[in-house]
Structure formats: structure tokens, C-alpha cells
């Protein structure tokens, strides 16, 4: 059984943010990301999006990326899941 989008997204954030194993398990839908985590600058977000494309096998267009998409964990997950269903 392949891991779910949720699990994969938590792993990607763990890698990008340098979290300890399991730390991302505590992310809830309303956990703040971009704007709440100072280390998520534009280069880190760009790396995050490229990694999401590679691991989730999706393509993210520039115009789909806005502040709301990265505002919370829930918003990012909903986006990733919708992308995978559409793929």
C-alpha cells in the first residue's frame, strides 16, 4: 500500500524544515506554514514545491502558488490531494 499524500507531505516538510522524525505528525489543518515559519523563505518554498512535484508526481504551475496555498498545512494538503486526483 503506497503511503498517502498526507504522509508524504509531512515527510517532505520534515525534510525541508529539518524536523525530528514524528514532529510533523503534530501538524493540524490549521498549523501555520509560510509567514509563520521564518525559515520558509522563497528559496525554501521553491525547493518544497519541486520536491512535491517529484515525490507526488504532480506539476505545479507558477500561478497556482499564492499566499493562501502556503498559509496552512491544511491548505497545502488539500491542494496536493486535488492535484493527485486530477492527475
Amino acid at each position: 500500500m503506497p503511503s498517502t499524500t498526507d504522509q508524504q507531505l509531512r515527510k517532505i516538510l520534515t525534510d525541508v524544515l529539518g524536523l525530528k522524525p514524528g514532529q510533523a505528525d503534530g501538524f493540524a489543518a490549521d498549523t501555520g506554514l509560510f509567514g509563520h515559519l521564518p525559515e520558509l523563505d522563497s528559496m525554501a518554498v521553491a525547493g518544497l514545491l519541486t520536491e512535491m512535484e517529484d515525490r507526488l508526481d504532480i506539476v505545479i504551475e507558477d500561478d497556482e502558488v499564492d499566499g493562501e496555498l502556503l498559509e496552512t498545512y491544511g491548505a497545502l494538503l488539500a491542494f496536493a490531494e486535488a492535484k493527485r486526483e486530477a492527475a
Partner: peptide, 16 residues
């Protein structure tokens, strides 16, 4: 892929 990530970072910071 390296270029794409760097281009994307530039687009994001320009948007900000």
C-alpha cells in the same frame, strides 16, 4: 530541475 527550482524562487520573491 535545478534551474526550475531557482527560477521558481525568483518568481516567488518577485511576487512578494
Amino acid at each position: 530541475s535545478l534551474l526550475r527550482t531557482m527560477l521558481r524562487a525568483r518568481v516567488l520573491s518577485a511576487r512578494e
